[in-house]
Every structure is written in C-alpha cells, then in structure tokens.
Computed example of a mutant assay.
Amino acid sequence: MRLLMWLGLAVLVYFAVRKSFRANQPPSNQAQTEETAWGDNTFPQSSGSKRVEAMLNCAYCQVYFPSSEAVLRDSQQFCCAEHAEAATKSH
C-alpha cells in the first residue's frame, strides 16, 4: 500500500513540474499580422534584439538569398547583377 502511495505522489510531482516548465516557456509566434511579418522584410524574434531577415528566391537560378542583397529588375528579384543581366538578355 505504501508503494502505491509513493508512486502516486511521484506521478503528481512529475505532472506539477511538467506544468510549471511549460508555463515558463515563451509563447509561440502563431498570431503575427502580415504587416509585422513582412512590412520591413524582417521577422521579430522572441529572444534578444537580433532580427531575422526575409529570404527571397532568385528568378534566374532559384537560390534563396537575404532580401537586403536583392537586385530588382522588371519587378523580379535576383541574387546578383549577373543573373539580372542574364535574365534580361534571354527575354
């Protein structure tokens, strides 16, 4: 009978610690508005003051690159000036 009591107490302590641990975790970023997520091409992070930059897809080679390095031509985004020139020459 004592063993069953100690086992029950251990289970209660386990769930109490687990609930406490989950309550201390930062909330997830599920409810971001479109303006917050894409307005300045950066995404807010919950920890620290660093910001993550949005990634774009090159219209020529399909490689992803940071939005700060984008080369814009004819409303398309390219990863470098060479790919922008190659795409405009082929059309």
Rank of each mutant, 00 (worst) to 15 (best):
R22I: 06
L4E: 14
R73D: 08
S20Q: 10
W38P: 03
T33L: 10
A87N: 05
M1C: 13
K89M: 02
N29P: 03
V11W: 08
M5L: 13
A86C: 00
T88A: 15
Q62P: 05
S90N: 13
P26I: 00
F65W: 02
A54V: 13
S46F: 03
S90Q: 07
D74Q: 13
F43K: 13
M55C: 13
C79Y: 04
A59G: 04
R18D: 10
G48N: 01
A16V: 05
F78R: 01
E82Q: 11
S20L: 14
Q76L: 05
Q76A: 13
S28M: 09
T42K: 11
F15W: 05
Q62M: 08
P66R: 09
P44K: 09
C61G: 01
P44H: 12
N29K: 12
T36G: 14
F43W: 15
C58K: 02
V17I: 10
A84D: 06
R51N: 12
K50N: 14
V17W: 04
K89Q: 12
R73V: 00
L12R: 01
C58T: 00
T36A: 09
M5V: 09
V13C: 12
Q77K: 11
G8P: 04
S67D: 12
H91C: 06
R51M: 01
W38S: 10
V11K: 13
F15C: 01
C79S: 10
K89D: 08
P66G: 02
K19P: 02
R73A: 11
F21D: 10
L12S: 10
W38C: 09
A23S: 12
Q77E: 15
V17A: 04
E34Q: 08
S68C: 06
Q77M: 02
T42A: 04
M5A: 11
L12K: 10
D40K: 13
A23L: 13
E82G: 07
A84Q: 12
H83A: 08
A31V: 02
A37L: 14
A16R: 00
E69S: 11
A84C: 05
V13Y: 00
E35Y: 04
L4V: 04
G48R: 03
M5S: 05
S90K: 11
K89A: 14
W6K: 05
M55G: 06
R2P: 07
C79G: 15
G39N: 07
A59M: 01
Q62A: 15
E34I: 12
A86P: 09
R73L: 03
S67A: 12
A16M: 01
W6L: 13
K50A: 11
